[in-house]
Design a protein around this nucleic acid. Sequence first.
DNA 1: CTGGATCCGATTTGATACTG
DNA 2: CAGTATCAAATCGGATCCAG
Lengths: 125, 125
Amino acid sequence: MPEFLYKSKLYYNPVEFAMDRIGGTWKMPILWRLKDRVMRYGELKKSIPRITDKMLSTQLRDLELEGFVSRQVFAEVPPRVEYRITSRGKRAVTIITEIRNYGLLLMKEFGVDQQRIREIRKSGD
Amino acid sequence: MPEFLYKSKLYYNPVEFAMDRIGGTWKMPILWRLKDRVMRYGELKKSIPRITDKMLSTQLRDLELEGFVSRQVFAEVPPRVEYRITSRGKRAVTIITEIRNYGLLLMKEFGVDQQRIREIRKSGD
DNA sequence: CTGGATCCGATTTGATACTG
DNA sequence: CAGTATCAAATCGGATCCAG
């Protein structure tokens, strides 16, 4: 299990490297939503529950810098910015799909019922 | 994308659920090492660079509580405790393998050279 | 509308010492 | 040998305010 450097950070295995690119709370949900259509900033924001502007913009920036999504700015008023997935991003979606299927299997094993929980939405906030 | 509860925590998608079970810095490295043989605590510790006793014992406990590994204590002096992967853990190894392969692909794309870096070990600390 | 900047709390991880 | 307890450091994510 050889270790290696990338951008001054020391990694111990390929899993760690992959998770540093597409892990964290928000990157997979973002890529998942972009997988089959172009979306604007505001659309993404509305479609991802509880994400804040800070997290959405920083995570989009990371994903763009590392080539998973591309960003297109239109010189309009009001401003319009569109995000689209790249071919690298599409390869990421492949593994996200597999993790997702594994998650569904685990949920079955643990007896998690995958239904909407309305009580939470009503009372919680 | 229905949300759901498990152990009083609210999840928004199956990926998040899966990563809460086998994600984090240490769980995959532990499962990876147990994938084809039984190991003792001290063996695991030696084989995983930089893990501390605290992290190894807490992560092993989590994995045991959720059924990914089993723990066998021998009533001997000195004490001996063996960890072995379960069938649930083996299914986890399947997806870990896929993430690992994806990580290797990403490393190629990013031009990361996967060789041992001796200078780091010597100078860094 | 699409963010950037700043501040702060929560959570995770690490260092060190100690025990049956 | 196989951990636990305690405290500190680092990281992550959220809240708020501001700007082109």
